[in-house]
């Protein structure tokens, strides 16, 4: 049986389905009786969503223009 420190160490990999079956079972068993770590999991899920929501950056118009100009130059330099 794993303790809270070990469960917390593995909980992000648990959320990403990136644990071996035995490790996953151990985390699930720990979560079945530990309310604090259940809170940690819910918080990690929310934090992951906050990170994903920030995943898309708008290309500023001036940057898009410079990148477009660069692609035009590369195209024109084609032999």
């Amino acid at each position: 049986m794993i303790d809270c420190t070990e469960a917390v160490r593995q909980l992000w990999d648990f959320l990403e389905n990136d644990l071996e079956a035995d490790d996953r079972d151990n985390v699930e068993e720990h979560l079945s009786f530990c309310r604090t770590c259940c809170g940690e999991v819910r918080f990690a899920e929310e934090l992951r969503d906050v990170m994903k929501d920030a995943a898309r950056a708008h290309v500023p118009d001036d940057v898009a223009k410079r990148m477009g100009d660069l692609l035009d130059e590369l195209e024109e330099s084609q032999p």
């Binding site: 898309r56 950056a57 290309v59 940057v63 410079r66 990148m67 035009d72 195209e75």
Partner: peptide, 30 residues
């Protein structure tokens, strides 16, 4: 053509660069 493909990829490339390279995103994309 390279230009067509690259223009399609540009928005998410810049987005990824913004997150891995911060304010140096434009240099990295270039």
């Amino acid at each position: 053509s390279f230009s067509v493909i690259a223009r399609q990829q540009l928005p998410w490339l810049y987005s990824l660069a913004r997150r891995v390279a911060g304010n140096r995103a434009e240099d990295v994309v270039q």
